[in-house]
């Protein structure tokens, strides 16, 4: 691991300002993803701004009947909160489907949103990756791409977003609150936070230099059933091959794109009276694989249809 300087932030706006002053600085929250990447030499920050003790670890009721999750709430604390379990079960289920208990006890709401892809070639410094080095090329196109994206990928990057939590946030229409280097607060709809790769896969979110996530706001839950289901190689503690979140008439997909994928075509089809499998097929008509992940198209279609059907039962 490369040497770095360290500061413990005491104020969110000051942390954002400090981060904006050094492009090689990183925020450190739970550390479960960043420290792993630093050990591998993939992240090489020269300065760490520890935001883990900022007073952002509360889960609060909002005036309109929703919840505000402080950015430093842990994944396990959110999943265990009685209000989340009763009113936002899709979020509790998604969180509990991710990582291991030990990791969930450290990983934070804010950090989960900006975790990096688990693409094998992003993790292998000996191979080209446009995320690590823009313009280097993408080794996953012709390589081991079983876990790669089937929606919204580009010729420059076929990586998938690994978050379970963010898939649930998509169907809850969550809003991400931030503070910028200028001290200004901003509210970002979850669907606008993550970017598709295009020809700039190294730019993963719409966050500006130094901008710090301070909270995730959940509007009141939509009417109707909620569910989260994840397909993967083993029953626990494994990344997803595909996942589906459902809340009311909203559907989102995980592990199939570089952003948590809101399935608006399927939602429109369902609203128009389509059967679950027809709605899933409508969403996935645009899907394509790279060879090793071709199976994910059918897997995702069937998983979607099953989750939608379960919600109708």
């Amino acid at each position: 691991m490369r040497p770095f300087t360290y500061e413990r932030a005491s104020d969110p706006a000051a942390a954002a300002k400090s981060a904006a002053e050094n492009p090689d600085a990183r925020f450190l929250a739970g550390g479960t993803n960043l420290l792993d990447l630093m050990k591998l030499g993939i992240e090489r920050p020269t300065h760490l701004i520890d935001v883990g003790r900022l007073p952002l670890a509360a889960i609060e009721d909002t005036a309109d009947g929703g919840l505000r999750l402080g950015a430093m709430t842990t994944n396990s604390a959110v999943a265990a909160d009685p209000r989340v379990r009763a009113r936002y079960p899709v979020l509790a289920q998604a969180l509990l489907a991710g990582a291991s208990p030990q990791l969930r006890n450290k990983a934070t709401t804010g950090g989960n949103l900006v975790q990096r892809t688990r693409c094998l070639y992003f993790y292998d410094p000996a191979k080209p990756c446009n995320k690590r080095r823009p313009g280097a090329g993408c080794a996953a196109l012709e390589g081991l791409n079983r876990g790669s994206a089937i929606l919204g990928q580009s010729e420059h990057c076929v990586a998938a977003n690994p978050s379970d939590m963010a898939v649930a946030l998509q169907v809850l229409d969550a809003v991400v609150e931030t503070v910028g280097a200028d001290g200004q607060a901003r509210a970002i709809p979850i669907d606008d936070l993550h970017r598709l790769p295009g020809d700039t896969p190294h730019i993963e979110t719409c966050l500006r230099p130094g901008e710090l996530i301070t909270a995730v706001v959940l509007p009141p839950p939509p009417q109707g059933p909620q569910a989260y289901r994840k397909a993967r190689d083993r029953a626990s503690y494994a990344g997803g091959l595909a996942s589906v979140a459902l809340a009311g008439g909203r559907i989102a997909l995980g592990a199939v794109s570089l952003k948590p994928w809101r399935a608006r075509k399927a939602e429109a089809a369902l609203a128009g009276g389509a059967a679950p499998d027809e709605a899933a097929a409508a969403e996935l008509a645009q899907a394509r694989g790279q060879g090793g992940n071709d199976f994910k198209i059918n897997l995702t279609r069937r998983l979607m249809a099953a989750v939608i059907s379960s919600g109708k039962a």
Binding site: T32, G52, Q102, K106
Partner: peptide
Amino acid sequence: VRINACLSLAVMHD
């Protein structure tokens, strides 16, 4: 609370 000691810096736990 149980955590992975390998993915935490000591200084985070001052």
